[in-house]
Design a protein around this nucleic acid. Structure first.
Length: 120
DNA sequence: AACTTGACGAGGG
DNA sequence: CCCCTCGCCAAGT
């Protein structure tokens, strides 16, 4: 077993699994942390294949603070409902306060974009 | 191997 | 606030 037995997707899930209840991360934030080869779009792409039993997929939302799955999964707004059960408050437009609920993994307490290099 | 499709996001109108 | 455009890149056809 070498390092690369962890697939592209698994690296995304590994981060998602660390998100605590009632906290969220955005697709772009995860992509920024994983770095080269990862973009918000691909993170979103792999999320649809996440195993809901083992990955708290509902804690990944878009940069506007909304659930991208609102009209996609059935029943509709299921993602928001689960997050609300965890304690996340959404306004009447289906938006939550990212400043308040966004979670940063250890070592990424600040926005990755504002840091010169956290890996250096 | 070429082309299409997204659970995205920044920027502009 | 809403809508559109474009860059991004893994996967499926």
């Amino acid at each position: 077993m070498n390092v690369d037995d962890r697939t592209y997707r698994e690296k995304v899930y590994e981060i998602v699994r660390k998100i605590p209840s009632a906290r969220v991360m955005t697709y772009g934030q995860i992509a920024g942390i994983l770095g080269e080869g990862y973009t918000a779009r691909t993170v979103g792409y792999v999320m649809h294949a996440a195993d809901s039993e083992n990955v708290p997929w509902q804690r990944v939302i878009n940069s506007q603070g909304k659930c991208s799955t609102d009209k996609l999964l059935l029943p509709h707004n299921i993602q928001q409902k689960i997050l609300e059960e965890e304690g996340v408050i959404f306004n009447d437009k289906g938006k939550c306060d990212l400043e308040k609920y966004r979670w940063f993994p250890e070592g990424f307490e600040e926005k990755p974009d504002d840091q010169p290099s956290l890996f250096g």
